[in-house]
Design a protein around this nucleic acid. Sequence first.
RNA 1: GCCGCUAUGGUGCAACGGUUAGCACGUAGCCCUUUCAAGGCUAAAAUACGGGUUCGAUUCCCGUUAGCGGUACCA
Length: 490
Amino acid sequence: MTETKETTASEVRVRFAPSPTGYLHVGGARTALFNWLFARKRRGTMILRIEDTDAERNKPELVTGIIEGLKWLGVDWDEGPFYQSQRTEFYREMGRKVLASGHAFLCYCPPEKYVGGDHAEEGAESVKVRKITRCTCREGKPSTPGTKPAVRFKVPVGGTTKFYDAVFGEREFSNDEIEDFVLLRSGKESEEFGQAMYQMSVVADDIDMRITHVIRGADHISNTPKQVLLYRALGAEPPIFAHVPLILGPDKSRLSKRHGATDVNMYRREGFLPEAFRNFLALLGWSPGGDEEYLRTSDLLEKFSLEGVSRTNGVFDRAKLEWFNTQYLQKLPIEDLLPEVEARLKEDGLWKDEWAAGAGHEWFSRTVDLLRPRVRLLPDFSSWSRAFFSDEFAIDPAAKAKFWKDEKVPGLLAKLADALGALTEWNHDACDHASRKVAEEGGVKAGLLINATRVAIVGQAVAPPLFDTMVVLGQERVVRRLRDALKEWK
RNA sequence: GCCGCUAUGGUGCAACGGUUAGCACGUAGCCCUUUCAAGGCUAAAAUACGGGUUCGAUUCCCGUUAGCGGUACCA
């Protein structure tokens, strides 16, 4: 049914199968990343499948956000996106097939009345233990004749179901612990059956799409035996599973909105570099085995393996993510960084086209290079470093208070403006000498003048080394800003 | 409740029977100095607990505890 390219039996085929009931959260993003790394490393095929079989909870518009997030992360796919909502008849057919083969039965119990499962008794005093029970429909005796039936899988009595997990190893579950799960919902009105349930549609698709490795969150471990049973009932060989541990919040509970940003697109908006985010994510629950941490995508591709995936849930540590971002900001080849900064400046209305090529581009490159060691997030280029890209910038009151409190400052700045304005050469050393001379003549330590000057020309207490800053800003601008600063004392 | 998984500093990972238990983030302190949100150095900080197995356990086994997951006509 699905159109796929010809593949050899040994080719790896994986899929990322998000459900559009929310945005792309970091846990899903990491699952996607692991699938992608595995597929690319093994020269296999990556498939994107949207699991939207729950009409009640799905919001189609969320798919756009998920795809956007994946693209930002650099996760691409070879087939899809496939939408399960468009394959409902296929799942129904598969469900009927299971039914026809005797591996399923028609269940007439209303959902609330179903006796299977082992839900804890809600009762106040004693908590009664309920073993899994099998309803009478299973034996062909409809419990509530006249209602529309659902299709339930007929879990074997006794025995165990095993599967191999590349992360957790050989797993074995007792069949008596598995309830007769629903394959097809009961139909509405004239329908014979309703929409397929998750277990039915994943297995049907994974067989149809010839998935070889199912890499997904560890929250699916207990679903797996059900799926294995389904594979067998359909006469198919189960794939290799690889369950990756979950991502937790700082309080060790499952990561959720109340822990702050969990939407991958939030990190894009906040100004993280995708490659830094990817590096951070890859190391949460996976390790190459050694101590290296700065792993660019090519390194991840080279080193990734399912064996390196950890079995323990991990806490999402934003501080470390930020550290990774500073590492990338500092170490990335400048030409890889420039486009990111450019996009940011454009977004913030600070971009000038003259920086796109030629001398302007060279200036832009030098300036970004000068700024990068002190920047943490992309937006810092247009906020903290605004004075480098625009003449309209504010002077930080705290910086003023700290470095302009000496009464000699205005006089010194005026003298400096004259001295710098008179320079015929404009470079680091010329600025350095001129400034120190002014300080000396004014009878103050060079630091006093230097700090005061920094505040005047960039408006911040923290900035790159002053004379490098002057060179980049240019003579005319520096002198003008010094003169402008003088107005602050009037 | 029941079933399952997991357990190394605050956090992420190393050590896959023998190490003074390693690295990184974060934290604290020091240095550099022209600022620090840059750089350098140092420090504090861990094998959850109790039993085994073994000449020897972080590592293997059992129990306890804790956390997490599942227990839907959700995915």
